[in-house]
């Protein structure tokens, strides 16, 4: 089992979280949508696996490189 950190590419806020802890995700699946400077930025699963933890909630501020969630694969 390997853990993959999914990080934010930008400073912004969390707009929507589309998956829940424990959900199975495939590479490319949409996990959440961030919002920064009027732009919606999709966060997609970089690997196939299970979402073991989601560290943010809607309206949370996020920094660049902040860990958003973890995927076990």
């Amino acid at each position: 089992m390997a853990t993959t950190n999914v990080t934010s590419e930008v400073i912004g806020t969390v707009w929507k979280v589309e998956k829940a802890k424990g959900d199975a995700v495939e590479e490319g699946d949409l996990i959440m949508i961030l919002e920064s400077m009027k732009m919606e930025i999709p966060v997609e699963a970089p690997v196939t696996g299970t979402l073991s933890e989601i560290k943010v909630a809607p309206d949370d501020s996020v920094e660049e490189d902040q860990i958003l969630c973890l995927i076990e694969s």
């Binding site: 590419e9 930008v10 400073i11 912004g12 920064s36 400077m37 732009m39 930025i41």
Partner: peptide, 14 residues
């Protein structure tokens, strides 16, 4: 624009 063209034009606040 405050953005990064090399990263698909993602915004860059600061």
């Amino acid at each position: 624009y405050a953005e990064r063209p090399e990263k698909k034009f993602l915004p860059s606040p600061g």
